[in-house]
Every structure is written in C-alpha cells, then in structure tokens.
C-alpha cells in the first residue's frame, strides 16, 4: 500500500514543480497567479495525502484555511495588478537589480547631501540675521 502513496506523492511533486516552472516563466502576472494557484492546491492535496497515510486529524485546519484564502491572491492580482507595461513582464536579472539599487542609493545620498547643505546654509546665517536684521541671505554662502 505504501507504494501507492509514494507514487501519488511523486505525481504531486512533479505537478508542483511544473507549476513553479510556469510561475517563473509565465509571461504575464496573471500566468504566474494561475500557476501559484495550482501550486497552492497541490500543497493542499499533499497535506491531505500525508494525513490520509498517517490517519492524523491535526492538519485538517491547514486544509480549511488554505482553501479559504487560496483564491484571495489571484482575485487581488486580477483586480488591481493585471495592467503592467510589457518591459516589466519578465523577472529581472541580479545585475539589473543591483544597478537599480545602486542608482537609488546614489539618488538618496545626493538628496541627503543637498538637505545637509541646505541646513548648514540655513543654520549659519541665523545668528547674523538676528543681529543684522532684514537681509538674512546676504552673507550666507
């Protein structure tokens, strides 16, 4: 009997792998969503298979919860995130991600630097301005 269970587990494993491959490859967000939906159901089937083998009851709440919330992701993506520019439809390479993060960090540092300079310029003439009065920006550079 255990061979039947092992065979079923192997089939489920292959099904999950195929779904993950489609989720990685899938040209659009909706394809990935469908693939991950299939993967979630394979997960439910796998847990049910294990529970059937060992006749255990304590994993049943997992099945109920997964089947209740499993569709939320695909509905959310279909409703709110299905419009995407074509150039965003692929998974970026590590080099591209690193380049984007570097440029983001550079922009952040530039913004920090500008803010610091503005603070200094603002702080330096402040006592002068109190003393001299009307022209606070005159000698602050």
């Amino acid at each position: 009997m255990i061979y039947v269970y092992l065979l079923a587990a192997a089939l489920l494993l292959v099904a999950g792998l195929l779904a993950v491959v489609r989720a990685e490859r899938g040209p659009s967000m909706l394809d990935r969503t469908v693939a991950l939906d299939v993967f979630a159901t394979v997960l439910v089937a796998g847990i049910a298979l294990e529970a059937a083998w060992s006749r255990r009851v304590d994993t049943l709440p997992i099945l109920v919860a997964l089947s209740m919330v499993g569709f939320v992701s695909s509905v959310t993506v279909a409703r709110f995130a299905s419009v995407e520019p074509p150039e965003q439809r692929r998974i970026r390479t590590a080099a591209e991600v690193a380049a984007e993060r570097a440029s983001l960090r550079a922009a952040e540092e530039a913004a920090d630097e500008a803010e610091r300079l503005a603070h200094e310029r603002h702080a330096a003439p402040a006592p002068d301005a109190e003393a001299a009065g009307p022209e606070p920006r005159g000698d602050g550079s």
Binding site: L12, R22, A45
Partner: peptide
C-alpha cells in the same frame, strides 16, 4: 478504494500541472 482515489487525484493534479506549463 482510498488508494485508488488518491492515485486518480494525483494523476489529475499532475494533468493540471502539465497543462499549466
């Protein structure tokens, strides 16, 4: 009967995986 149903269910799930891919 449970073993047969398990096999059939696993085969159908595999069919879903193949179809999705």
């Amino acid at each position: 009967v449970a073993a047969v149903l398990l096999l059939a269910g696993a085969v159908l799930t595999l069919a879903a995986g193949i179809g999705v891919l």
